[in-house]
Design a protein around this nucleic acid. Structure first.
Lengths: 173, 173
DNA sequence: AAAAACGTTCAGTTTGAACTGAACGATGCC
DNA sequence: GGCATCGTTCAGTTCAAACTGAACGTTTTT
């Protein structure tokens, strides 16, 4: 059992496992799986880079999960690929700059969701214009009221996007 | 069929349904169900308060879902209870102040998740102190390194909490 | 060239949460 | 008092996403 955390005291090992479990719980509560948080927490505590098999064995999960999750973490810039000379296995270590991780993962995810929502609202607007053009007077009046509300929703959406892209936020961290 | 949106033109009705569907998709992508977003979108567009049965019929979902989701929306201050005199049914209308909704729903949810994460990290710290007290020299050295990393994680957590509670954010909206 | 090691992929399973349908208690109506 | 209406609750179902196990292609080793 080449467990990375094996040589440390049992109390410390328990603390690390709690931390890893906590990381898994956190990511799961945000809609990403729990394995992804466990992997990041493990790499964050590990004194040296780890390869897929080590991670899988340490966390007792399948290597398939580790493969996909590590790729996702790499997309988020949460882990970095590390080459160990003389070893063709892929080693990974955690990005300890939380701000960078947050920027590439959480905020990026929210931005993406908001963007798809914006596209959908645009489609609504298209339908709305047809309604404004075609209906009779009473219908146009109704349409104008709803158009106004949709306009407000769109404006709010714009404000949220601006807030997420505001560099001030990262300054506050 | 006492559908609220029935008297409007078919084009406008299509636009509303798209908007409702979009709302459902948005809330679902954030981990709340899709019904909750559909209900809010429907009430947001509705010119008059609606009762549970009307909502259920309009969205073609069970009244049980509407009951629980409306209660959740009420917790978030996203919908308001409205009494119609001479009618003992519960009517609801949408809170159109998006900032208030965001404050009570999304941000509150994130704060809550972060708090539970903090509690878990505190537990880790407790285990860590035992490790620092008990082990031999080498183990204490290891523990100090990990303790430092946990300290950084905790510090970052504190910053995030501060950011979420920073009134400046709501100012930016 | 054969075999072993490594990472990826994909179909299948598991799991957890959303959603439903039916039963229930409460409240107003006749 | 009997009956209908309304909202809630809870066990059961459905459904989607996470996760797994096995197969595959590629690269290295002997």
């Amino acid at each position: 059992m080449p467990l990375v955390l094996n040589h440390i005291s049992s109390e410390l090992r328990a603390a690390c496992q709690q931390f890893i479990e906590s990381g898994g719980h956190t990511t799961q509560s945000f809609g990403f799986g729990q394995v992804i948080g466990q992997i990041y927490a493990l790499l964050y505590l590990s004194p040296r880079p780890m390869c897929l098999d080590e991670i899988a064995e340490e966390l007792a999960v399948s290597k398939a999960s580790v493969s996909t999750c590590v790729r996702q973490l790499e997309l988020w810039a949460a882990v970095k690929h590390v080459w160990v000379k003389g070893d063709r296995r892929d080693f990974y270590e955690a990005e300890t700059d939380f701000k960078a991780v947050l920027r590439h993962s959480f905020l990026a995810t929210i931005r993406k969701k908001l963007d798809t929502a914006a596209v959908r609202i645009d489609n609504v607007n298209a339908s709305l214009e047809k309604a404004l053009a075609n209906g009779d007077d009473n219908q146009r009046k109704e349409a104008r009221v709803i158009a106004e509300r949709l306009q407000r929703a769109r404006e709010f959406h714009r404000k949220i996007s601006a807030l997420l892209n505001n560099p001030l936020i990262e300054h506050l961290l």
